[in-house]
Design a protein around this nucleic acid. Structure first.
Lengths: 346, 346
DNA sequence: TCTTAGCACTCCCCGGGCTAGAGTGCTAAG
DNA sequence: CTTAGCACTCTAGCCCGGGGAGTGCTAAGA
């Protein structure tokens, strides 16, 4: 019966570190030379054969070096990894980047995805905040030409949703002012999740004399309902989508196609992130992934918060042979910085 | 001295049509067989040699068939092409698609790029309206928590720009109402192009007692200045970016990389479209292209209008060997439909 | 003078076979 | 238990030659 020993762990770690760098199968000679383990290549060979038997390593073919298996990576991530440190001054630099853009949520998210992909050289996915924790702040009805009005809803932390609407007749300014005052009084401060048809029914009683309300109703509901909001909110920003092309494992055009097609379908990406129960930091390796297409990929996911409430996720997508120490550090770091920045926003 | 004849034109057209279909060099036999020109392959060979001398065709190497040169495509597009017809019922289908989404400008543009890429199986670029022809409609200042307010500007045809702003002190509701009324009175109906620092200076005199104005000033200017607006307005929507991968000329991964990188840089795409003086429909072939990277590509560009004013452009990007009859028809068609839909919006 | 059949020639593509090199597993000795 | 040595295996890269597609030229026919 083969068992795990400290030396085996050292060798496994060495193999994975080396493989992360080179993307080539690693032979016993390389290990015994580069890492001072003070044993000969023959010994390493024996140990590697054991590690293969244990399922941590595998051979692409006889007479080639070893590469890590998913199980090997898993063990590495769980027990062997030395997470990198992010240089002190990076936070300042990134804050600078945030300041350069208007402090709008969508911009912040976009900057985040860019930074994350630059930091890691992989592809970053960042989901904008999507949460029942948002609350209604202000409704504004602005008349346009003719019978059209624009419905603007301001939600906490500066999120704005708007929609144009054509009414049956041209509304007067007072009419609009009245109705928006009524609605504002009733809804102000309510969490979006609690705004349902009951609230509207109550409202309808109060303002049933305004025929506009019925027309507004549908519009408001769509603007406020999560599904509609999620168009903008759960929105996934991709950063460095083409970075994945730089990885040697994607030198095959067919594979690349599959991925880029995936990237074009936002809803799939959204589902992907949602399926992963990120609390803190989570690493999903190879076939652990919910999508078959991603069997050669890993995801490093973290969530970020506004005021201690988890509202969104971010992830790095890269090949299974990913620089985990670096990526884990980067994702952790960005999640923290983003959470801080979001808090300051409020 | 070799001269162009009707028969040469026929052969050139046949070669290009065939090459568009197969992406392989075309031999004389193929032409004499598939197209009933009633001459033997030997005659075709002579004619093709002439066409090569004239610069319309070229040979990848001796003893291969001919492929069209940029000049050949140019002649084809200018003089030989039979533009395809778009089926009658397509317009209805596309209108349906428009209706499915909220009738917001950004959504309309997105749908347009999707449709265009589906229609052609190439990559579509659609620039959102960007124009001095837009005019100011309404300003709204909404207080958020603390010292923050949100500045919302509604521009003609329902475009909305907004930005959050932190003031020196917490503003009162009346203060905000007053100042926005003053600004609205002054700016209402002004074309954005005419809103410059002079207007603001005048305004400043009127409302100098409101200390808020100075703080607002910068914010308003950025919201209203084109450069800032162009963030959203000149915004390029890509449709079917990965379609370009389906083309055999992009089976080389290096080429693909160049393109996908390009697609990630919106400003470059914007410049690209701006450099092309699209009035009606324009075809840019191969090296005629302003970007070196695109020497193997063609662009078919058209502009679209709102109320007879050209406000934006759309384009199809594909390999030089592109199905011009189809693409030209599609771009023309979508530009027209979009112009119609935009008009109905107002 | 233009067209066409015939033919020799050119060049690419593709598959087979061969070699060099890297890495292994096994054995036997330290 | 470790290690040196060795035979073995497998791949990547290279060269080579044949088949095929297509050409240009020539000379004969309309």
């Amino acid at each position: 019966m083969v068992e795990m020993t400290e030396r085996k762990k050292g060798i496994l770690k060495a193999v994975i570190n080396e493989y992360i760098l080179t993307a080539e199968p690693i032979g016993s000679r390389t290990i015994s030379k580069k890492y001072e383990l003070d044993v000969s290549s023959a010994t390493i060979r024996n140990e590697m054969a054991d590690l293969e038997e244990l399922g941590y390593l595998q051979q692409p073919h006889t007479s080639a070096g070893r590469i890590p298996s998913d199980k090997g990576y898993r063990f590495y991530v769980d027990s062997l990894i030395d997470v990198e440190k992010i240089p002190e001054n990076f936070e300042e630099m990134i804050r600078q980047k945030y300041l350069e853009r208007k402090k709008e949520v969508q911009n912040i998210i976009q900057v985040t995805s860019q930074m994350l992909s630059q930091l890691t050289r992989y592809t970053a996915l960042v989901a904008s905040p999507s949460s029942t924790e948002y609350y209604f702040q202000h409704l504004q009805l602005v008349p346009l030409e003719g019978k059209k009005i624009i419905v603007i809803v301001v939600i906490s932390s500066g999120l704005v949703q708007h929609q144009t609407l054509t009414l049956q007749h041209r509304p007067s300014r007072e009419e609009l002012a009245n109705i928006s005052r009524l609605i504002n009084d009733r809804l102000q401060g309510l969490p979006l999740g609690k705004i349902g048809s009951e609230v509207f029914r109550e409202l309808e009683k109060e303002i049933k004399n305004h025929s506009i309300f019925k027309e507004l109703y549908r519009s408001l509901l769509t603007v406020l309902t999560q599904e509609e909001l999620s168009q903008e909110w759960g929105k996934i920003h991709l950063g460095g989508a083409t970075n994945i092309l730089e990885q040697p494992e994607f030198s095959d055009l067919e594979k690349v196609k599959v991925f880029l097609k995936l990237f074009e379908q936002e809803d799939i990406l959204r589902q992907l992130l949602n399926k992963i129960p990120a609390q803190g930091l989570q690493v999903v390796i190879g076939r652990e992934n919910p999508l078959e297409e991603m069997k050669d990929c890993s995801l490093v996911v973290a969530d970020y918060s506004i005021q201690d409430t988890r509202v969104g996720k971010m992830a790095i997508l890269g090949p299974t042979r990913m620089n985990y120490p670096k990526v884990i550090a980067a994702v952790n770091f960005m999640a923290e910085v983003l959470s801080k920045v979001m808090r300051e926003e409020d």
